[in-house]
Nucleic acid binder design. Structure first.
Length: 500
RNA sequence: GGGUUGCUAGCUCAGUCGGUAGAGCAUCGGACUUUUAAUCCGCAGGUCGAAGGUUCGAUCCCUUCGCAACCCA
């Protein structure tokens, strides 16, 4: 007998599995790596499912599979097990007669979670399930920790996030979400490449954080002895590339913002940004509609999707509304003249219990009102246009009204999905907007932008008339995966440090 | 930052109007050569999130803390 108290101690099942590993080590190489997988579970099923049992008997099909042992039904001298690989699951039939007495006896002590390699012949069971009659079975990697409940899987959300690998093993819905995410990104990438955009990578570490109004993470370069900031947006670098002559560029990469966590915010998130010379924001609206409509068909086979019980229609032309019109639509008691009167606006916001930033101008007040009373109503895809210049320091002023910019944001399911505008390519106007941002920063707005002289210099070389857009990839995945929180579409979402 | 809820066996969950806890699955032992969350029999497995307090007695009541979820700012 082994020391009973040791086995009972701490975690019984891990100890049991460790003793099995010790036996494996004694018997030879416990971690063999010679097994060659030749087939995938679901490929095999889809290729041979329509064959007749007779055909499989007449011309035997031998397959060689590897994966994780997920289910085990031992009935004396014969067993059924499920093997799960990257494609899905297949059933294997394991018998003492085929394996031999010793090998079968060893197999009976293998655990759910173990990684195995199997060779065998395809056949149909009594109930016509295509399965593998195993002739050779090998334990490739011993799993020392038990898997969650074979039926209920892993439900504890914290565990799903902290131990995503376990979540992925046992919850097919999680696997599907991240397959969909990969599919979505590759579709967008191909779409843009077909539209003749060039994929580029710009710095993640910026000496001057810019391109968005957001708080950056700070770090330090030792050799250069200089502070660096994780980027909040790639915008200013992508536009430098347009100055350089790359007239259509895009980047899909991470941004970092030092802000709170929520169901819609992770400190690092993935953003698509693309810039197109000789286009304006209206061209981007057209492109965005085309992209999303195609994406919906590609991912779901339909142009109307269900998100959290709401129906979202990508088929019909997306609505367009100006900021002001949208406020008026969802606040019937507010008049157009209210929107031009800063005192009346402040009174209104106060009565709605909306906190106002100090020194807020009309534009900022409009946006506060918009965020609190309009945004969550915008379920079907809606472009909001005519954003105030005050809060759009990188966007081109409207030719007829300098207080607004040629900018839009796209809202779906009450959330901002995209932000695009005709780019400000007048270096003098850009310099004065940066100055205004610096002024805001000095007044206490730590999200305001810095003055980026090198960017101004780039503009002085001449940025062609250009339009650019950013699309939040995580939020887009949430929509198509019907995920209520951003953590469900990020493999390893940021959490607080776990307690030991 | 504020509020609400949760934290019990490896997993999924019960439960104790305060008397230190149960089930299913998994594990371990036994039976079983076509199962489908296999079935049947048996054993074992817990600092009831952490620390204090109240109490004869706390997993339960109170306080603080940790982590998470949801809502609000």
């Amino acid at each position: 007998m082994t020391d009973q108290t040791d086995i009972i101690d701490i975690q019984e099942q891990i100890s049991q599995r460790r003793s099995k590993l010790t036996a494996l080590r004694t018997g030879g190489n416990a971690y063999p790596n010679h097994f060659k997988r030749l087939h995938l579970a679901v490929d095999v099923l889809s290729t041979y499912n329509e064959h007749s049992p007779e055909a499989l008997t007449e011309t035997p099909v031998i397959v060689q599979l590897a994966g994780r042992l997920m289910l085990k039904r031992v009935m004396g001298k014969a067993s059924f097990i499920h093997l799960q690989d990257m494609s899905g699951r297949i059933q294997l039939y394991v018998t003492r007669d085929a394996l031999g007495i010793d090998a079968y006896e060893d197999f009976k002590h293998w655990d759910i979670g173990d990684i195995i390699g199997a060779t065998g012949q395809l056949f149909f069971t009594k109930t016509s399930e295509l399965s593998v009659k195993v002739s050779d079975l090998q334990l490739l990697t011993k799993a020392l920790r038990p898997l969650p409940d074979k039926f209920h899987g892993l439900n504890d959300q914290e565990m799903c996030y902290r131990q995503r690998y376990v979540d992925l093993m046992v919850n097919p819905a999680t696997r599907n979400t991240f397959k969909l995410r990969s599919h979505l990104v590759s579709y967008i990438r191909n779409f843009l490449i077909q539209e003749q955009f060039l994929e580029v990578e710009t710095p993640m570490m910026h000496a001057i954080p810019g391109g968005a109004t957001a708080k950056p993470f700070t770090t330090h370069h030792n050799a250069l002895d200089m502070p660096l900031f994780l980027r909040v947006a790639p915008e200013l670098f992508l536009k430098r590339l347009v100055v350089g002559g790359f007239e259509k560029v895009f980047e899909i990469n991470r941004n970092f913002r030092n802000e709170g966590l929520s169901t819609r915010h992770n400190p690092e998130f993935t953003m698509l940004e693309f810039y197109q010379a000789y286009a304006d924001y209206r061209d981007l609206i057209t492109l965005t509609e085309k992209l999303l409509r195609g994406l919906s068909i590609e991912l779901t086979g339909a142009s109307i999707i269900q998100y959290q019980g709401q129906s979202i229609d990508f088929a019909k032309a997306f609505q367009q509304l100006s900021v002001k019109d949208s406020i008026l639509r969802f606040n019937p008691d507010i008049t157009l003249s209210d929107l031009d009167d800063i005192d009346r606006l402040k009174t209104r916001l106060t009565s709605l219990k909306i906190a106002m930033p100090a020194n807020a101008g009309l534009g900022r007040l409009h946006m506060e009102l918009f965020e609190h009373t309009v945004e969550h109503h915008l379920i079907d895809p809606t472009f909001i246009t005519e954003y105030p210049t005050e809060i759009s320091p990188l966007a081109r002023r409207n030719d007829h009204n300098p207080d607004i910019t040629d900018r839009f944001e796209l809202f779906i399911a009450g959330r901002e999905i995209a932000n695009g505008f005709s780019e400000l390519n007048d270096p003098d106007d850009q310099a004065s907007r940066f100055k205004e941002q610096v002024h805001q920063k000095e007044a206490g707005d730590d999200e305001a932008m810095h003055f980026d002289q090198d960017y101004i210099t780039a503009l002085e070389y001449g940025l062609p008339p250009t339009a650019g857009e950013g699309i939040g990839i995580d939020r887009l995945v949430m929509l198509f995966a019907d995920a209520p929180t951003i953590r469900d579409v990020i493999l390893f979402p940021q959490l607080r440090k776990a307690q030991d």
